[in-house]
Design a protein around this nucleic acid. Structure first.
Lengths: 228, 228
DNA sequence: TTTAGTCTTTATGTAGTACATATCAAATGT
DNA sequence: ACATTTGATATGTACTACATAAAGACTAAA
C-alpha cells in the first residue's frame, strides 16, 4: 500500500476554526427556527454572546452566509434572511485552471448529458419564433473564421437551453461554458458530428422528439467516442 | 405605473461592503498571478496593507474563500491555494424551504433532463455486476410499504447515476434529492410510468441505447405530463 | 393637520491592538 | 548524530473604539 492509498484512507485532520463551527450553527439555527425570507435576525452582539464567540468570529461566519446570499444586512435595520442565489456560489469556484482533471472531465460529461436530455423540455416549450432565431444563428456560421465559429457554436447551443424555458438550466449552461471550452480545446482536432446545426433546426421544424434525440446524439457523437 | 413596475426598473442600491470588494480583488489576484494549488499566499498583514483595509475585513473575505475550499491555512505555514470542492458551495444553499417556487421547478426539471440524458454514459460504462445490483434493488420494491418504496426509488435512481461512472454527477444527484423529493410530495398523487424499474433493468440487459431512452421516457412520462 | 427639517438612537461596517496557539527552524545539550 | 528546548512567526480569537447609515422621535413652518 503506497502513500497515496494511505492519504485516501486517512483524511488530514482539518482543525475546524470557530468560524467554521459558527457557520454551521447559524445554518442549523436558521433551519430549526424555520426562518422565512424577509424575517429579521437577532443582532450581531446578541448572536455572538449567545454563541460565546467574539463579534469578529461571528462576522466571519455571517460574511460567508452573506456571500451565498442567504442573509442581507443594512446599517440600522439589522439582518434579514434572503433567498440565496443557488448558482452564485457555484459560479465562484468554477475556474478550469484550479479544477482537477477528473472533475473537469466529469463536468464535460455532465454537459453532454444535459444536451442529450434537453429534447423533452424543448419540444414542450418551443415556439416558431424561437426556431426562426435558432435557424438564423445556424445559417450565420457557414464559411467563417474559427473564432467566429466558436462564438456561433456557443450562441446556438445557448439558444437551445434558452428554449427549454428553464432559466436555471440556462444560467447553469452559461457557467459551464468555460469548462466545456477548455476541455474541447485540449483535444485539438475540431469535432464534427454527422448532423450539423442546420440539421437540428430542420428536425425541430418537422421532426419528432425521437428524431431530435437521434439528431443530437449524432451531433455530439465525436465527443462520446472520445469517452470510450 | 404602479410601485411594482417601479421596483423592477429601479433595482435597489446594494452598498458593497469592503469585504465584498476584497473578495473579488483576491479572486482576481489569484487568477492574474495564475496560482496553482499548493502555492503559498502572502501573509494576511501584507495582503491587508496592500489592499488598504484592516486585517478584519481581509479575514472576512478570506473566510469566504476558505469556505469554498479555495484556500487553506495553517497556523504558522501561512495560506495556500487549494482545489475547491465545486459542489460544496452549491450544497450549502440547497434547502427546499428557502428556494423560491420557480427555481424549485427549474431544478426539478433539471433532474429530469439529467435522467433522460444519462443513457449514453450508462451504455458506455455499464457492467454486468452493476446491472445485477440494479436488478436486486428493483426486485426488492414490490409489495412494500410506502416509505420503503421511496427509499428504494432513491436507491434505484441513485444506482443509475453511479453506473454512469461520473462521481460529480452522482454527488450532484444526491444533492438534488431533497429538492426532487419536495416537489414530488407537493403533488400528492403517486406517479407511475408505463415502464417500471424492472422494465428498465430488462432493457439494460438486452435492449439498445435507443430502447433505454424510450423506456426512461415512458418511466418519467407522468412528470413530463405535469409540465405542459 | 400636514410637511419639512433636525436630532437622537442604534445596528452594522471598519480599524486597530493585544494576546493565544500552533508550528517551523535554529540553538542547545546529550 | 540525535533528542530537546527555545524563540520566531503567521494564523486564530477577543476586545475596544469609532464611522456610517437609517429608523424614529421631535420640532418648526406652511
Amino acid at each position: 500500500m503506497d502513500i497515496n492509498d494511505l492519504s485516501k484512507d486517512l483524511a488530514p485532520i482539518i482543525s475546524n476554526t470557530m468560524a467554521d463551527v459558527v457557520e454551521v450553527k447559524l445554518r442549523e439555527y436558521l433551519k430549526k427556527k424555520s426562518f422565512k425570507p424577509g424575517d429579521a435576525l437577532p443582532k450581531e452582539l446578541e448572536l455572538a454572546e449567545a454563541l460565546g464567540v467574539s463579534r469578529n468570529v461571528l462576522r466571519e461566519a455571517l460574511s460567508r452566509l452573506r456571500m451565498l446570499g442567504m442573509i442581507e444586512s443594512k446599517k440600522k435595520r439589522g439582518m434579514v434572511l434572503a433567498r440565496p442565489d443557488i448558482l452564485g456560489a457555484f459560479e465562484r469556484v468554477l475556474d478550469p485552471l484550479i479544477i482537477d482533471k477528473n472533475t473537469l472531465q466529469d463536468i464535460f460529461e455532465l454537459r453532454l448529458v444535459l444536451e442529450m436530455g434537453l429534447a423533452e423540455l424543448l419540444y414542450i416549450n418551443k415556439t416558431n419564433k424561437d426556431i426562426a432565431e435558432l435557424e438564423s444563428i445556424a445559417k450565420k456560421e457557414v464559411n467563417n473564421d474559427n473564432s467566429f465559429r466558436i462564438k456561433n457554436e456557443i450562441a446556438f447551443h445557448g439558444k437551445l437551453y434558452e428554449m427549454s424555458g428553464n432559466d436555471t438550466l440556462k444560467r447553469f449552461q452559461i457557467m459551464l461554458l468555460p469548462i466545456f471550452d477548455y476541455v474541447v480545446t485540449l483535444e485539438k482536432k475540431p469535432t464534427r458530428g454527422l448532423v450539423d446545426h442546420l440539421g437540428l433546426v430542420e428536425i425541430l421544424k418537422n421532426g419528432t422528439v425521437e428524431d431530435f434525440k437521434k439528431g443530437m446524439q449524432a451531433h455530439l457523437q465525436p465527443h462520446f467516442d472520445r469517452l470510450k
